[in-house]
């Protein structure tokens, strides 16, 4: 019986493996460029976020990215998750003006943001965003690492991937050459272009690579804030199931002992 079980399990594994491989191959065919792994603290099955890195990443988003990119699925209160205190969150929220209303007179009005507000979007609507960006729409970044092949590794590669176009390639007007962007022509100008572009509160040296890493990590957190809880729960669930499985198999052997 045990042998039978192993055979079945091996077959099931082979089936799922070949299925997985055919799917992986399908995915690989889509992006021709190899994305170098950035080795984040959350890469790997049991990785976790580095809170200091997330906070630096948020600073970059706030000072650089948020000029064009919205993150409308996040609220300021979510920043408690990356280690900001209640007062800090309130201060971040209050630093922006949010449109609210209508009030009792039927008029819209501006007020300082609250922790419960969603991140304020830089543009009123997609058309306004395109008008300000040479016709290109800066995508919302709330789930961007889930929405791109390669996830945070891809974002990091993209941010450090600007280069001179190869000889013979003429870029369209207002476009920039990027090694990792599909098609290589990207409308976004290099957002993190020089070391020391901003000053980190924790004194970390703000190299382009460091900044790209930090903001990619922050965006990964924004897309998957549940990642640490999920993995921790997964470990406990698997340990529980392993024990339960052992016990169940023992009971099964016992029950079947008189049959063979």
């Amino acid at each position: 019986m045990a042998l039978r079980f192993v055979k079945t399990a091996a077959l099931a594994a082979a089936i799922s493996l070949s299925a997985a491989m055919s799917m992986g191959a399908a995915r690989a065919a889509e992006g021709e460029v190899h994305i170098p792994p950035a080795g984040f603290s959350f890469s790997g099955a049991l990785g976790t976020y580095d809170r200091a890195e997330l906070q630096r990443g948020f600073q970059i988003y706030k000072e650089v990215c948020s000029a064009c990119h919205s993150m409308h699925l996040l609220s300021y209160r979510n920043l408690r998750d990356i280690g900001l205190s209640e007062a800090e969150v309130a201060a971040v929220a209050a630093s922006v003006q949010i449109q609210d209303g209508p009030n009792d007179n039927g008029e819209m009005f501006e007020r300082p943001g609250r922790a419960s507000d969603r991140f304020r979007s830089p543009f009123a609507n997609p058309a306004a965003a395109r008008a300000a960006n040479n016709g290109a729409l800066p995508p919302d970044l709330s789930v961007i690492t889930k929405a791109r092949n390669g996830g945070a590794d891809y974002i990091h590669a993209l941010l450090i991937g600007y280069a001179e176009p190869p000889a013979g390639l003429t870029l369209a007007e207002g476009m920039h050459y990027n090694q990792y962007f599909p098609g290589h022509q990207i409308a976004m100008a290099p957002p993190l272009s020089q070391d020391g572009q901003l000053t980190f509160g924790d004194g970390t040296n703000a190299t382009v690579d460091r900044m790209s890493r930090d903001v990619s990590a922050f965006l990964n957190w924004a897309a998957e804030p549940e990642l640490e809880t999920r993995r921790a729960m997964g470990v406990r669930v698997l340990i529980f199931l392993a024990i339960l499985g052992g016990l169940t198999y023992a009971v099964k052997r016992k029950v079947w002992a008189d049959v063979h």
Partner: peptide
């Protein structure tokens, strides 16, 4: 009891997907 053994193995595969690779089978 024999089905129970299978159920636990099935739940383990399921759990690996849900907790460690939830978007692996989806499309970005």
């Amino acid at each position: 009891v024999k089905d129970s053994v299978g159920i636990v193995v099935y739940l383990m595969v399921f759990a690996v997907l849900v907790f460690f690779a939830p978007n692996y089978l989806g499309h970005p």
